[in-house]
Design a protein around this nucleic acid. Sequence first.
DNA 1: ATGATAATGGAAACCATTTTCACTATAGAG
DNA 2: CTCTATAGTGAAAATGGTTTCCATTATCAT
Lengths: 151, 151
Amino acid sequence: MGRGYKWGQKLAGHGFRLTAAREAILDVLSSTNEHVSAEDIYMTVHADNPRIGLTTIYRTLELLEQTGIICKFEFGHGRAKYELSEANSHKKHHHHLICKKCRKIIDYTEFAKAEREYIQKAETGLEKKYRFTIDDHLIHFYGICPECKTG
Amino acid sequence: MGRGYKWGQKLAGHGFRLTAAREAILDVLSSTNEHVSAEDIYMTVHADNPRIGLTTIYRTLELLEQTGIICKFEFGHGRAKYELSEANSHKKHHHHLICKKCRKIIDYTEFAKAEREYIQKAETGLEKKYRFTIDDHLIHFYGICPECKTG
DNA sequence: ATGATAATGGAAACCATTTTCACTATAGAG
DNA sequence: CTCTATAGTGAAAATGGTTTCCATTATCAT
Ligand SMILES: [Mn+2]
Ligand SMILES: [Mn+2]
Ligand SMILES: [Zn+2]
Ligand SMILES: [Zn+2]
């Protein structure tokens, strides 16, 4: 029951195999708190295993997103970024604080109570009024980080 | 004091001219409630004035965004979408409800009180804890619209 | 082992957006 | 009004992240 076991189980549950490439990609995602791009992952994986191509990175990221193992974010900075989903990391449910200048992205988990209240009220109300079935939400705050203010 | 007057003033305040192309683009944005892409705008503008090129659409959208006249959204569907900013339309402050299947986007303005409470609390707290200066936020809810459920 | 299917990598294609560059329109000086 | 500097423009080319193609390889069930 090695490190890959958990992922193997997860993927098998969706009819996929845990290959070396997939494990390498999941390793990168598991061992960072950053929000990494396909190319970030490619470069890290490539250092250890140059046989793994960028195409496989993209394919795997799509697969992992479909199976709910990772989340994809388009912060509007050109390239998509990924992180392990809540259920698959020790990260708590969080939202993002983004510096408009340097593009730093901070996960914050505070204000959970106030957030739950608002989200819950809004979701219920929107489901009723617009007859949507809502299953996800996204909250970003934008501003200037302390480094960019003084710099 | 024609229709373009207001825009002329706004742009002049930033050192820009109100040209025919810019007015045409602002007309499109003013006369829709949808979230339109550069190409949407191009096609509409092009019908009346085929001399206006797509490059100018992109350039103008960037300019209008910089001057705060419009807002750009990257909903993650490949192309950016634009709408007049709050101050420049009769739309109220709103957020978005998005169908994951058909990509329909609904503006909602409900829950303003609960939202203000949460936003206010979060912003204050985040500014204090992370020393950011926050000036914007974005909230999206995702789900399936009624048409896509029955379809 | 064998055949069926899943996974892979490199090259090419895709496609929204940006850049380049030569040209045109305009405002402001004189 | 004319001249000139500058702002604005369009077509074509470039860009760059992502996707598709296709021939090859790995893996699973029999
Ligand atoms: Mn995050
Ligand atoms: Mn909107
Ligand atoms: Zn910053
Ligand atoms: Zn729908």
